[in-house]
Amino acid sequence: MELRTVTRMLQNARRPQKKARKEAQKAEREALARKNEPNKATKEGDSDPKKKDDDPDGAKLATTTEPMTDAMKFLTPLLQFSPNSIDAQIAGFEVYIRRKKYLLALRCLLAASALDNEHSKVHSQTIRFKLALDKDLATLPPKVAEIIKSEFTLLPESVSLTQFNNDYLSKHRDCARRTLSGLSARKLLAHDLAPSADADVVRVLKIDDVAMEEAIEGLELLQSWKSGELEAFRKAAAAKWPNATVFAASS
Rank of each mutant, 00 (worst) to 15 (best):
C108M: 03
D174W: 07
P156C: 04
E217W: 11
A138M: 10
I216G: 04
Q163P: 01
T139S: 11
L183D: 00
V144H: 09
E217M: 12
E151Y: 10
S120I: 00
V201W: 06
I147D: 06
F164S: 11
L189V: 13
T126H: 04
A112Q: 06
I147F: 13
D209W: 08
H119P: 00
D116R: 05
A114M: 12
I127A: 10
V204G: 05
S158I: 05
K171Q: 01
R203M: 03
V122K: 02
L222Q: 03
L189S: 10
M212Y: 01
L180R: 01
V210R: 14
K187A: 11
A197S: 14
A138N: 07
D209P: 04
C175V: 05
A199C: 07
P195W: 12
D167A: 12
A145G: 13
E214F: 04
C108S: 13
K171S: 07
H123G: 05
K187I: 08
Y102N: 06
A190F: 10
C108L: 08
Y102I: 07
D116Q: 12
K206C: 00
L189H: 15
L109W: 08
S184W: 07
A111Y: 00
L106S: 05
V159S: 01
A211K: 15
T139K: 13
V159W: 03
D200T: 09
E213M: 14
I147K: 15
P156K: 13
P156F: 09
S170W: 06
H119M: 00
V204N: 06
S160N: 03
A132M: 09
L137D: 06
Y102P: 05
D209T: 13
A185N: 10
R178I: 03
T126C: 07
L193D: 08
A197C: 11
F164K: 07
E151I: 06
L103G: 12
L188E: 13
D136V: 08
A197R: 12
E146I: 02
E217N: 13
L180D: 01
L140P: 06
L133P: 04
A176K: 08
E214P: 10
R173A: 05
F129Q: 07
A185F: 00
T126G: 02
L137E: 14
A111W: 00
R203I: 04
I127D: 09
T179P: 01
T139P: 03
R107V: 04
K149G: 03
G182K: 10
K101G: 01
S113F: 00
A138E: 11
A105D: 03
G218N: 14
R177H: 08
L222Y: 01
T162A: 07
I127K: 02
S113A: 15
K121A: 09
L109V: 01
D209N: 14
E151T: 09
A190E: 14
A114T: 03
Y102S: 08
I127R: 00
R186H: 06
A215G: 12
K187W: 03
L189N: 13
L222H: 00
K101I: 05
A145R: 13
L189A: 11
A112P: 02
F152A: 08
